[in-house]
Design a protein around this nucleic acid. Sequence first.
DNA 1: CGTGAACCGGAGCGACCCCTCCGCTCCGGT
DNA 2: ACCGGAGCGGAGGGGTCGCTCCGGTTCACG
Lengths: 218, 218
Amino acid sequence: MAPSTEQPTLRRDAARNRDKIVAAAREAFADHGVDVGVDVIANQAGVGVGTLYRRFPTKESLIDAIIDELFEQVSGLAHDSLDAEPPESGFAGYLRGVGQLQVDHIGCLSRLWNHTGHAEARKELEATVRRLLHRAQDAGLVRRDIAYPDISVILWSLRGVIEATAPVAPDQWQRYLDLVLAGLRPSDQPLSRPALTGPQVDRVFAIHRLRARGARSS
Amino acid sequence: MAPSTEQPTLRRDAARNRDKIVAAAREAFADHGVDVGVDVIANQAGVGVGTLYRRFPTKESLIDAIIDELFEQVSGLAHDSLDAEPPESGFAGYLRGVGQLQVDHIGCLSRLWNHTGHAEARKELEATVRRLLHRAQDAGLVRRDIAYPDISVILWSLRGVIEATAPVAPDQWQRYLDLVLAGLRPSDQPLSRPALTGPQVDRVFAIHRLRARGARSS
DNA sequence: CGTGAACCGGAGCGACCCCTCCGCTCCGGT
DNA sequence: ACCGGAGCGGAGGGGTCGCTCCGGTTCACG
């Protein structure tokens, strides 16, 4: 039952501070983006930066912790969507749910989809979303030549809309998603290009992860 | 014939260097994003940073110059699309053209749409795009309840897709645009939200312009 | 060709930010 | 109550980046 990475039982005040740091980081990242200074986070948590850095050896690792939380919410949402009624509505519900999650974590969007570890958790999420997609296709809501990587592309596009419009019109992305869902409905006009392949999607993740580290390569 | 902002006749070598700086900046921004150091640009242009800063008092003003170029290309593209054959194809052609421009200037995307000045040029572009949109609507290619601000939203979404996928699959955005265009076709299912209003779009621009200046507000 | 103004270059300043270090505090088991 | 050590805070190191300053150079006009 215990996770593989076992903590050597944090002292109680230390655990409390860790929670305060995570909460402060969550809020600060959502409000001001991942570029907020660590001192701002430490201040908001009521601790010193030294305390922060004892628990999270790197600012990046703190970001990862927040993104991990977010990823779990996405996973949970996908699983919940499996129980939607009627079943074929789960697909749209998943997309709408992810949209709302993105709105609630605007500052972190650039990191949401380049998840460091958890390859296995990613596989599971993918399997779930594939099921949602197939159900929608079987019900005639989504054209057959839409593949799983297309969902990633749609979510990237959603990110673009949300990042631009959310501060002004927090629900405008829903109108846009209506349009996309309409575009997904069966049609006899073929698409001009094939879908991304799985490895290509992985490379997109990899590139964005590199870029996130502040690469300044040639 | 002379533009309203008259230059006091730059010395020839100075003009040459200015051009070299702009060319280097265009390339550097496209390749590495707007976060490249000014010394990189100056190096590539074969001049010192001092020379760069004589011509462009701020890195921001250099970025603006590049964005202005890009904006003119968009304007030209919109006008060219007016002559498309058949006329109702101009709308899709415009969107595809803007997509390609975005691919060619990936690093600048975050700045493309928050254009500082030229309110009048913006108005003209808007008028042109409105005509393209109306033609497509009259031809039955686009549903009637799509308004001009929806085009901005679509371009923001396109930006999200391009930023994510272009390094791996430079033309994947076209598949995605196919879907959006399909979603724009007439339908009797209403959209769940109204379009953005003009002032809302302006506020989106304003907010992003502020954010670009590196604001670290509360 | 001579002259003065415009121009050039790059070392260096200041601001910012991530992270470390070390003297002090306070938890918690005995 | 006592004590060992985990935990704490925040000043400052190290690095980056935008921008400035000024001695030397080059252009263009008379």
